[in-house]
Design a protein around this nucleic acid. Structure first.
Lengths: 138, 138
DNA sequence: CAATAAATTGGAACCATTATAAAAAAATAT
DNA sequence: ATATTTTTTTATAATGGTTCCAATTTATTG
């Protein structure tokens, strides 16, 4: 029995974080998590979900992206002021950002390593370290 | 003769990049470059220039920040979607960003070093590498 | 000092995002 | 099942940062 049951997966994923499996959320979860690691903006996701014939308002896209992020299903990546990118890979890793295309992409596992972690300013603790390697088309 | 002549400095700095030394730009250049390395948002700078009694419209603040960035006097740093930060230090270096206060601050010279630079995706070249260490108040 | 070019300005426009309040859907209790 | 309660979705308005615009002011050049 090799057949996947994506619907169930999506339901389970939502259930595991305490979010109700609504039609909208299910469609979004499938788009986001059943196609490998992804980096999406709200507009992009809205276009995609609309293309597959599911009607979801932009407001719900934003609500969902924020909820998913709050429960740790997604991670937000700040690369450009103006619009937000959401990454389905929540593990610690870094990014390439193509300034020409606006495309964001994971940097393979350990090909960037910080040799030293700097000492945080007084009375602060390090939360996370983001490395963004900006590239341009040749 | 140790006395500085900041006005002349400001004029020179503008002249060197081919921007006319207007009253507004002079005030902004002085605020930005005569107080060590700084990280400012447009709103912040507008407040500051207003406080010292110089009338500059927000539009001009934005124009100037963008112009200064275009000619290499400033560097833009993307830390949060929503607002832009401008850094008076254009040399290669990295940042601490305090999520609680919104404060951006340079990481001293070499206390963060990337051990490996990852190989850029096909048909792209690396433009720059931004490291942002996010911290929170203890 | 006149003519020309560039910069500044207030306000409208814009864009991504968030808030709001009413309608719809899902969960729960009966 | 059905009624009741709670959560979610939605359209639309509101927001916040930024850019655009046409008119006015300022700086440079002749």
């Amino acid at each position: 029995m090799k057949k996947d049951r994506p619907f169930t997966h999506a339901i389970d994923r939502l259930g595991s974080v305490g979010l109700r499996p609504t039609r909208q959320r299910l469609a979004l979860v499938r788009l986001l998590f059943e196609n490998g690691d992804r980096h999406v903006t709200a507009e992009q996701l809205h276009r995609e979900v609309t293309e597959i014939g599911v009607k979801v308002s932009l407001a719900t896209i934003y609500n969902s992206l924020n909820q998913f992020t709050a429960v740790g299903l997604l991670r937000e990546v700040a690369v450009e002021t103006g619009r937000s990118y959401f990454d389905t890979n929540t593990a610690a890793h870094h990014h390439f950002f193509n300034d020409d295309t606006g495309e964001l992409q994971d940097i393979p596992g350990d090909s960037v390593v910080l040799s030293t972690l700097p000492i945080a300013p007084d009375d602060t603790v390090v939360e996370s370290v983001d490395v963004i390697v900006r590239v341009r088309n040749k």
